[in-house]
Simulated assay, not measured.
Amino acid sequence: MFGTKAQEKQYAQDWAQKTGNEVHMTTAELNDDTVDQVKGFDGVITQQTTSLGSPKVYEKLASFGIKQIGTRTAGYDMIDLDSAKANGLTITRVSIYSPRAIAEMGVTQAMYLLRRIGEFNQRMNEENDFSWSPSMASNEIYNLTVGLVGVGHIGGATAQIYKALGAKVLGYDVAYDPEMEPFLTYADLDTVLEKSDIVSLHTPLLKSTANIINADALKKMKKTAYLINVARGGLVDTQALISALKNHEIAGAGLDTLADETTFFAKKVDAADVPEDYKELAAMPNVVVTPHVAFFTSTSVRNMVQIALNDTATIVNGGHSRNALIY
């Protein structure tokens, strides 16, 4: 079990005791330098945002008799699917661990921005300004249109929350889900960008979605709109976003993920190692950044560990998992 976090250990131990299986945990990530640790084990799972490494990693896993790589995440862009396929490796992910956890974080960031909390804090703490300026009046959610880019499990949970709050919800997705009809109206991407007061991203990072929010997309958004990204950093062109914020092309942004986050998120780093784009964004009162923790609830952590371990045991024993990717 690679990339083990302190909060995961008890859940893994509980699973091992309940099932009678052995779970070896390491904080190291799976890559070219660590893959030899897998030798002698029957399965492997990891949680990381960095690449698993070169094709040699997949070749070695297959030579060790490994049948599957499990990721304790919904995203799987750290895995080279071509190398996995070439070596007969099944890939499983935890696509549903607690959609509401991530949905709630996205809504929380949106409400923080909508009610101008960061801007009020700056005025009070830096300018001693406690006045009720007319320019600081905010809107209420039931008056707004929320646009979702991606209407899967997390996007669907987000739609239900916003709908319950009274917002009009638009959704863009390459796949139509009739179960979402009570909570949103499907629309094309341009309509979602142009009509929404809050644009919230919930799509995987694929070649087709990389930088889906670029300079052109940001220009299509309302100047009063907020962008929320609780999905993958690579969905957004960071420099284009910074430029749009500086030029007041959009009102603000809530970001739980950044394109270059693997160098500093989920770890303590020296001040010199904090990227300039993060510093620039974090200094803006109309931006809120969190370190990829939208998933980080006790419910999510438990489910991510135990579902991933269950899938591994199932495949090792010759079974099939509904969480296996078809690729």
Results as ranks from 00 to 15, higher is better:
Leu235Lys: 04
Asn310His: 13
Ala244Glu: 15
Val230Tyr: 11
Lys267Met: 07
Ala271Cys: 00
Thr185His: 10
Leu184Phe: 08
Leu206Lys: 07
Ser298His: 11
Ala231Asp: 08
Pro275Arg: 10
Met221Leu: 03
Pro178Leu: 10
Phe264Tyr: 13
Val192Asp: 06
Val288His: 11
Thr262Ile: 04
Ala231Phe: 08
Leu241Lys: 11
Thr185Arg: 03
Leu201Thr: 09
Val230Asn: 15
Tyr278Leu: 13
Phe265Met: 02
Ser196Met: 05
Ser298Thr: 12
Lys279Phe: 01
Phe183Glu: 15
Lys268Pro: 02
Asn214Lys: 09
Val293Asn: 15
Ala217Cys: 06
Asp260Val: 04
Asn229Cys: 07
Arg232Tyr: 10
Lys268Ala: 10
Asp260Ile: 03
Ser208Gln: 14
Lys267Asn: 09
Thr257Phe: 09
Leu206Tyr: 02
Leu245Tyr: 06
Ala210Asp: 00
Gly252Trp: 02
Leu189Glu: 04
Ala225Arg: 14
Ala271Arg: 11
Tyr176Arg: 03
Thr191Trp: 06
Leu235Ser: 00
Asn303Ala: 12
Asp256Ala: 02
Val289Pro: 00
Thr224Tyr: 00
Glu276Pro: 07
Ser243Gln: 14
Asp188Asn: 13
Asn211Ala: 12
Ala282Val: 03
Thr257Leu: 10
Asn247Tyr: 12
Val274Phe: 08
Thr224His: 00
Val274Glu: 04
Thr224Leu: 00
Arg302Gln: 08
Gly252Met: 01
Thr224Phe: 01
Asp311Trp: 00
Pro275Lys: 09
Ala175Val: 14
Pro204Glu: 11
Pro291Asn: 06
Ile212Leu: 15
Ile212Pro: 01
Ala283Ser: 09
Glu280Ile: 01
Lys222Ser: 03
Glu181Arg: 15
Lys267Val: 03
Met180Gly: 10
Glu249His: 13
Leu281Gln: 05
